[in-house]
Amino acid sequence: MRDQIIIAAFLILGAAFALFGLSMSWLLSPTRPTHGKGITYESGVDPIGLPWIRFRPGYFIYAILYVVFDIETVFLYPWAVSLGAQGTGWFILIEMVLFVVILLGGLFYAWKEGSLKWH
């Protein structure tokens, strides 16, 4: 419980401090809105069109691969903790080598297929 309470306290006090800072700035700073200040910045000229359009992020496949590899990494942590434990033999190592080799195979397949190319 102790750790959870401390983390919760950090979250709550952090949010409170951020609100405090923002309200201090609101109290201390002048507010003189003009037309020009309200326009979205686009290097000095009036903005042309909205940015909320359909566009290609360039890393959609990366995002999918990321999920796969992130989960793999999470699996690796308990393995790493118990690697040196008493009574663990070569089996724990062979298992993980197989697992990692399969995933690396997948990565190289995606690579050769051209999924890792930035568009």
């Binding site: 952090g14 309200g38 910045y41």
Partner: peptide, 27 residues
Amino acid sequence: KLLTKEDRHPNQTDKWLYCLAPIIVFV
């Protein structure tokens, strides 16, 4: 200077998310 600068809020923003984002980054 940071504290006393005018907080410019452009017209076109997504208001709630715009105000919330610094807190999401900070906490």
